[in-house]
Simulated assay, not measured.
Amino acid sequence: MASVKESVSVAMAAYNGEKYIQAQIQSILSQLGPEDEIVISVDPSNDRTIERIEAFGDSQTNPVHQPR
């Protein structure tokens, strides 16, 4: 019997979260396996939230940009 590899997708919303977003992502990633992911819905922020998320350059971290 072949085993099925399960994975987890964590959904997260972000808005003007520049100050805490990297610590939040790092905390979540430390609890995930290599096959898991974080999907982050990024509302149009007035700060550098998206730049902080993209700085991870990690295939497990997937930002989804919401239009203004």
Results as ranks from 00 to 15, higher is better:
61 T>V: 14
10 V>T: 08
49 T>A: 02
32 L>Y: 07
62 N>A: 06
60 Q>M: 07
39 V>D: 02
50 I>L: 15
11 A>L: 15
5 K>W: 00
61 T>A: 06
16 N>V: 01
51 E>A: 08
54 E>H: 04
2 A>I: 08
63 P>C: 07
20 Y>F: 08
38 I>E: 11
33 G>H: 14
29 L>I: 01
6 E>V: 13
9 S>R: 14
5 K>I: 07
39 V>N: 03
50 I>Q: 00
24 Q>I: 08
57 G>K: 14
22 Q>C: 05
3 S>V: 12
29 L>S: 00
67 P>M: 02
4 V>A: 10
66 Q>S: 11
65 H>F: 13
38 I>L: 10
39 V>M: 10
41 S>T: 10
46 N>E: 15
29 L>T: 00
58 D>Y: 04
11 A>H: 12
25 I>S: 04
57 G>E: 12
6 E>S: 12
54 E>M: 07
7 S>P: 00
55 A>T: 08
42 V>H: 04
14 A>Y: 13
37 E>F: 07
30 S>M: 06
32 L>W: 08
34 P>G: 05
19 K>M: 03
51 E>W: 04
25 I>C: 06
45 S>V: 02
33 G>Q: 15
18 E>P: 02
23 A>W: 13
31 Q>N: 14
54 E>T: 03
56 F>I: 03
12 M>G: 00
35 E>Q: 14
34 P>R: 05
62 N>S: 10
27 S>I: 01
36 D>Y: 04
33 G>T: 14
33 G>M: 11
61 T>R: 00
49 T>Y: 05
6 E>P: 01
41 S>E: 13
9 S>D: 15
63 P>V: 05
14 A>H: 13
15 Y>C: 01
4 V>R: 13
17 G>C: 11
31 Q>R: 12
13 A>T: 12
2 A>G: 06
37 E>W: 03
64 V>P: 06
23 A>C: 01
27 S>Q: 12
35 E>T: 15
52 R>P: 00
25 I>F: 04
68 R>A: 12
35 E>C: 02
49 T>M: 07
32 L>G: 04
2 A>L: 07
57 G>P: 01
13 A>Q: 01
56 F>W: 01
3 S>I: 11
16 N>S: 06
34 P>T: 12
17 G>L: 09
48 R>T: 15
24 Q>E: 10
37 E>L: 09
19 K>P: 01
40 I>W: 04
47 D>W: 06
3 S>Q: 10
30 S>L: 01
14 A>G: 14
25 I>V: 08
15 Y>Q: 03
12 M>T: 00
56 F>T: 03
23 A>R: 11
9 S>K: 13
42 V>P: 00
54 E>C: 04
34 P>E: 14
